[in-house]
Design a protein around this nucleic acid. Structure first.
Lengths: 209, 209
DNA sequence: CCAAGAGCTGAACTGTGGTTCACTCCTTGG
DNA sequence: CCAAGGAGTGAACCACAGTTCAGCTCTTGG
């Protein structure tokens, strides 16, 4: 016997894998899944087509990982935006912060947001999308539940509210996100949607005294 | 010269076309777009594969028409549910009626609803889907605008509210609609979502006095 | 320096459907 | 009854990605 994988080669291997994922991510973020053909990903990563298959069993697995990472990143950012407010902050304000983060980030990276939210994807990735939405819903869910406990919000089906919020945000963005959509005023969009979200949880534009 | 298409042949031709559309509709409603391969559609319609192409320039066109008809049907039903209430009915109630119709119909024909709302489709059909959503939004939009005029609802960005409502309904149904989703209690779902919709437009569970 | 083994290469392969087209079958007007 | 022309047929075609694999290159331990 003679050759044994060592840290160095291992690292090199990991780096290649990373380049592949990165390349796929860039392509998706720039042109949607349409652009993320295996050959294109390989070319952009500077490897041969076959190499992709030394790191991923199939295209679906690769895209699933790309999707998972990107969505995780988004969810983390939104969660951070919510948690940046102290735990004593009213639920309505925390939801507003989450919604605003969601919207602004989506408008910043429109193509990626479209890919994450609405672009047709193959079933394997679609499953990941469900998880993505659930993760967002979980954030809102926690905040709303907390608000109810503290008596700030009226009783409601928490997970239903959360899911509906995610849907409302996503749908209201689909127009503005679509590649050819005219971009309306960002601040107005944020203001309008935040107001919607707040009404929908508090039951009033300003919390009922 | 000798042969001229006449009413009879014209009718026959239209009937064939109709059978093709109908077959495609059934396949989509039963198994999603996945099942609606051209060969399968043709077989179900009792014609040869090539015949499909004597009536539609491409599969995309066929599916677009199928989608358009189905969605039109759904939109009409919901609009009817809203308009069944007299014009004097409070906006909140009319929105509730629309939402309930939307939800109940979706749960009734789950596969079709999934196909209309969320299933990955090719770009041509996706465009039709946008129109479908806009049509729903238009219904809510009109009602909300009316409610504002009459002083029942607080000022708000009407089309934004409408889009958000459509998104909220769709998203809250995606879980329950997905082929493998556990079906929760229908009435509870309706009640919860209707409450959400009402809060989101009125700003309170019961209009603030 | 060499043998062994792992990673990499990229041209060739493959499987899946949408699409085509040469042909047959009907219908119509003369 | 016949010529003209459209409807219908379905097997063959084709395009396109994803996937494979025989050969090559590089790294490692002796």
């Amino acid at each position: 016997m003679a050759y044994r994988p060592t840290q160095r080669t291992e690292a090199r291997r990991a780096a290649t894998r990373e380049r592949i994922v990165g390349a796929a991510h860039e392509l998706v973020a720039r042109g949607g899944y349409r652009e993320a053909a295996v050959a294109a990903v390989a070319a952009r990563a500077g490897v041969a087509t076959g190499t992709v298959y030394r790191h991923f069993p199939s295209k679906a697995e690769l895209l699933t990982e790309v999707f998972r990472r990107a969505s995780q990143h988004e969810v983390d950012a939104t969660r951070a935006a919510v948690e940046a407010l102290g735990p004593g902050t009213p639920a309505a304000e925390r939801v507003a912060a989450g919604a605003e983060s969601f919207i602004r980030r989506a408008l910043r990276g429109r193509r990626l947001a479209w890919a994450l939210l609405a672009e047709p994807v193959d079933p394997a990735v679609e499953a990941e999308r469900l998880a993505f939405r659930r993760a967002y819903a979980a954030i809102f869910s926690a905040v709303v539940a907390d608000g109810i406990t503290r008596g700030e919000l009226p009783a409601q089906d928490v997970s239903l509210t959360a899911a509906a919020l995610v849907g409302a945000l996503g749908e209201a963005l689909v127009g503005p996100l679509s590649p050819v959509g005219a971009r309306p005023d960002e601040d107005a969009l944020v203001a309008g949607l935040v107001a919607f979200c707040q009404r929908s949880i508090t039951g009033s534009p300003e919390p009922c005294p």
